[in-house]
Amino acid sequence: MADQTRIAIDRLNLHFGSNHVLRDISFDIPSNAVTAIMGPSGCGKSTLLRTINRMNDLILSTRISGRILVDGQDIYGPGIDVIELRKRVGMVFQKPNPFPKSIFENVAFGLRIHRLGNQHEVRRRVEEALRRANLWDEVKDRLQESAFSLSGGQQQRLCLARAIAVDPEIVLLDEPASALDPHSTTRLEELIVQLKRDYTIVIVTHNMQQAARVSDHCAFLMLGELAEWGRTDQVFTKPKDKRTEDFLTGKFG
């Protein structure tokens, strides 16, 4: 069970037009663990994350080579249904993006488009998702209120609940705490650590302390190249790459 590979990234190259954004990246993301993708701004970490649920497909000038295997299957190979892939790989964005609907309908959104369950089943799964996102107790009496009435931290946990309601295997988090205050950040980090029991989690962060707190494995990205990857405790205590060491000791970043 431990260190079983869930996602294998294999010689991945990505261009936006003439811009070579990701260069020959290969590393493995283990199952039921938190993997952090770190690096300075503009190094391509969000782009790398978005290759895993093929959100970069929305940008027309994207060219990709190499493979990403999820459970052994190349998600850029022929016969892959992107809709099905995105159901299996959930995502939470950098800025909380609740839909302009009620709290309940936000979480039910994915269930409705995938027609998962009848009215009763939807209610049950919405409650379960909200409980898992540690939000149920705060919103159970106001499920019909607008999602915009929630605080930033609550909105981000709502987005997490919305993502896990459709029962994905993998959850991608794109700097989920960057718009949150310290208290909300702490709550979200605790939640992430809790959730790795059920999901494989990949989190992008430019905050090294956060990566150290929540992740089991980490990958360090510099200018589109993978400088180093491995167990978080090893990368943080004995970095093998000079660039990682400079970043960790605060020489730049």
Partner: peptide, 15 residues
Amino acid sequence: IPSSFREGALALGST
């Protein structure tokens, strides 16, 4: 309409 409404739905596996 903000693009985050579209992206959020697409990321959940909507067409």
